[in-house]
Simulated scan of single mutants.
Amino acid sequence: MPTIHLKTLKCIEQEDWTFHDDVVLKVNGEMALFASMDDGEKYKVDWSTSFTSKAVVTLYEADYGGDDNDFLGAHAVRSGSGTLHFTRDGANYALSYAVS
């Protein structure tokens, strides 16, 4: 059974221009990270989980006060390693990962 290891998440450009982003990173619906991030900030995720056919990695920016969360992107990963980019809704995040 393959395992995905999420290494680091870098905020190149945050989605929320009035305050920091509260980012929610999930793999197949399982929470991998909840963190507050600003432009240029890098966060060591260092999180792993096993999966069967694919790992769907999603990133959201959490909003409060009745506003829906902002969907920043999703990627289906089966093998390999590299960087996933999340660029929806004006954001720009880069997540390094490896599958073993």
Results as ranks from 00 to 15, higher is better:
S50P: 11
N69D: 15
E41C: 08
V57S: 06
R78T: 15
A74E: 15
C11Q: 04
A55L: 11
L59E: 05
K26L: 09
L33N: 10
A62P: 02
W17M: 11
E30K: 13
D16S: 10
F71T: 00
D21Q: 06
F71D: 01
A62H: 15
D46Y: 01
A35F: 02
D67M: 03
V23Y: 03
D63F: 07
K42L: 09
K44Y: 12
R78A: 06
T52N: 12
D21K: 11
G65K: 04
K26T: 14
D21A: 06
S53I: 02
E15L: 01
A55T: 04
E30G: 00
D46Q: 05
E41F: 11
A74I: 01
T18Y: 10
D38T: 09
E15V: 08
W17A: 09
A32D: 05
A55M: 11
D67A: 13
W47K: 13
A32R: 03
S48K: 08
S53W: 06
K26D: 12
M31K: 12
G65A: 09
V77N: 11
V27K: 00
D16T: 10
A32G: 07
Y60E: 15
D39S: 12
S48I: 01
A35S: 14
Y43G: 00
Y43Q: 13
D38K: 15
G40Q: 08
F34T: 09
S48D: 12
H20A: 10
Y60N: 12
S50T: 14
Q14D: 04
W17Y: 05
D68L: 03
R78P: 00
T49G: 06
L25G: 07
T58E: 15
D63C: 12
K44H: 11
S53A: 10
Y60T: 07
R78W: 01
N28D: 13
V45I: 12
E61D: 15
V57C: 07
D16G: 04
T49I: 07
L25V: 04
E41Y: 12
V23G: 03
T58I: 02
V27L: 05
D46E: 15
A62Q: 14
T52S: 10
V27R: 00
I12P: 00
D70I: 02
K42C: 07
V27G: 05
E15C: 12
W17L: 10
H75L: 02
C11T: 02
K54Y: 15
T52H: 12
E13F: 06
F19Q: 10
D21G: 03
T52F: 10
F34D: 09
V56S: 11
A74Q: 14
D16H: 03
G66D: 08
Y64E: 09
G66P: 13
V77G: 04
G40A: 03
D67T: 06
F19P: 00
A35I: 10
E61C: 13
K42Q: 13
F71S: 00
E30M: 05
V56Q: 15
L59W: 08
N69Q: 06
Y60L: 04
A32S: 14
D68F: 04
